[in-house]
Design a protein around this nucleic acid. Structure first.
Length: 491
RNA sequence: GAGCCAGUAGCUCAGCUGGUAGAGCAGCGGCCUUUUAAGCCGUUGGUCCGGAGUUCGAAUCUCCGCUGGCUCACCA
């Protein structure tokens, strides 16, 4: 650090600007490599961060890294001049440089740029961890001194991204996945909208919120745990297909599947039901897989998963029967409690029917659903915003797509009967009084909207972080969020 | 929130049953005009996470704390 600052002074004394304002780039690294035949002998300008240097007296090789990859640069003192070569010699790995020169292939066959002009673009003052790679004869890559400390990787993601191309890859894919979803929804006449993050009543999901305070109004507000109720208000308003990519916030535990803020896309389509939505989910996911991964087969956790439709569809009761051997479809609360005990599922007194079934399902069924599966027809108690099943009033028309043993979304035929909705909210209030911290609050304004009238509607939420984990085969949510939540550094 | 594990140089790590800290890479000074983990010669560098204790003596043993990872519990 001290040495690098001295170098900075020296560079200035030599008459070079260590932080110039611009550089005119004509080609990216992989562009040059992919079009070598056309570009050979042509002059190109390229820029990037210097990632390796091999200095050899009056000549030198280095690699620069741009967003796409790396390319080798060859410099000779007699080409770029004494002064500039002196400058090059004191540069460090991590500095940004720009070069102009001819594209050529070295003796060993590596496509490189033979520099005619060379310029420092930005001086780096802190060293990067130097990761070295070697290609074995069999083509396998051996990595030396990998930047492995997870804490540092998460806290200093900028370093992680510079030093680990595969990390950068995951995030590029994340961005492409989001783009693919947006494309697909826009193509299907959905309108992208924005709804409040600061909400006076939090709703639309079962979770504990973050609370904040608005000074002027002198009221507490909640960071949204979901945007469901607002998007439905827009359906009431006559916007027939809407979606929002939403950061939601839940004040709960953190682990490799949970970050306090996470991303969901929620979408609503008027005049449709959950069956239509199942087809739609199959299409969406396949569109993503095709456009981002180029195929429907993915590898996740050693499992090969085939995303191509149709996916298996299974009711929740049938799923539990299949994996536990017990038919719970006719059981009341006390029978369920006994069954849960027999199956070694932990339950607590404040749990209602819905929660108990959810526990059994989560414990015995979900982890076993590796290939894409729609679990459908949930008990009414656990889904206060979903419409009653057309054939069975104890159930609702709801499904969750489960892939790789984890739910990646949640969807219903939306409840649009205002009187039924009010009764369901009242049930939630009772649960809250029993001590369920996650029971949903009654939202009068939302009820008023339903009273104005909402058309039959299908709704869906997809957890973007989990979907990205699945499609990029990452074990932790922290590996798909640039800056995951961490305790602040002490100094 | 609970359990297990970890924290030594910029990075990756070694350091045995306690004897006063080491390697490779990076850095620094040289040599080298087709190298690629470049090479060769030389060299700097550490509150061994923090605090307390045991001991003649602690990176090493004990306790407390901090930070993180993994697993479990709640939730997406």
């Amino acid at each position: 650090m001290i040495i690098r600052k001295e170098k900075l002074d020296k560079i200035r004394q030599m008459g070079f600007n260590p932080y110039p304002h611009e550089f005119n780039q004509t080609h990216q690294s992989t562009e040059i490599k992919n079009n070598f035949d056309q570009l050979e002998e042509k002059v190109v300008s390229s820029a990037g961060r210097m990632m390796s240097v091999r200095l050899m007296g009056k000549a030198a090789f280095c690699h620069i890294q741009d967003q796409q990859g790396r390319i080798q640069i060859y410099l000779r003192k007699d080409q770029i001049g004494e002064d500039v070569f002196q400058l090059f010699k004191i540069l460090d790995i991590g500095d940004y440089i720009g070069i102009t020169g001819q594209v050529f292939k070295t003796k060993t066959g590596e496509i490189s740029i033979y520099a005619k002009e060379f310029q420092l673009l930005s001086k780096s003052l802190k060293p990067l961890p130097i990761v070295k790679e070697k290609e074995e004869d069999d083509g396998a890559k051996v990595v030396f001194d990998q930047f492995a400390d997870k804490e540092m990787r998460y806290r200093q993601r900028y370093v992680d991204l510079v030093v680990s191309p595969e990390v950068k890859d995951v995030f590029i894919k994340r961005s492409k996945i989001i783009t693919a979803i947006r494309e697909f929804l826009n193509k299907n006449d959905f309108l992208e909208v924005e709804t409040p993050i600061l909400q006076p009543i939090y709703g639309g999901a079962a979770a504990r919120p973050f609370v904040t305070h608005h000074n002027t109004l002198d009221i507490d507000l909640y960071l949204r745990i979901a945007n469901e109720l607002y998007l439905k208000r827009l359906i009431v308003g006559g916007l027939d297909r809407v979606y929002e990519f939403a950061k939601d916030f839940r004040n709960e535990g953190m682990d490799r599947f949970h970050n306090p803020e996470f991303t969901q896309v929620e979408l609503y389509a008027a005049y449709k039901d959950y069956r239509w939505m199942m087809d739609f989910v199959e299409q969406i996911v396949n569109h993503i897989a095709q456009s981002v991964l180029g195929g429907a087969k993915i590898l996740f956790n050693e499992h090969e998963i085939d995303l191509s439709p149709p996916w298996r569809r299974l009711t929740m009761f049938d799923a539990i029967k299949e994996f536990s051997g017990v038919d719970i479809s006719e059981m009341d609360e006390s029978a369920l409690k006994n069954t849960a005990k027999k199956l070694n599922i932990e339950i607590t007194p404040e749990m209602g029917v819905g929660k108990i079934i959810d526990e059994i399902f989560g414990e015995l069924v979900e982890p076993n659903l590796i290939q894409p599966t729609f679990i459908m027809d949930y008990p009414i108690e656990m889904s206060p915003l979903a419409k009653k099943h057309r054939d069975n009033p104890r159930l609702v028309e709801r499904f969750e797509p489960i892939i790789g043993g984890k739910e990646v979304g949640n969807a219903f035929s939306e409840l649009n009967d205002p009187i039924d909705q009010r009764e369901r909210f009242m049930e939630q209030v009772k649960l809250k009084d029993r001590g369920d911290l996650e029971a949903q609050a009654l939202d009068e304004d939302f009820l008023r909207a339903l009273e104005i009238g909402m058309p039959p509607t299908a709704g869906l939420g997809i957890g973007i972080d989990r979907l990205v984990m699945l499609l990029t085969n990452q074990p932790s949510i922290r590996d798909v969020i640039f800056f995951p939540q961490m305790r602040p550094e002490s100094k």
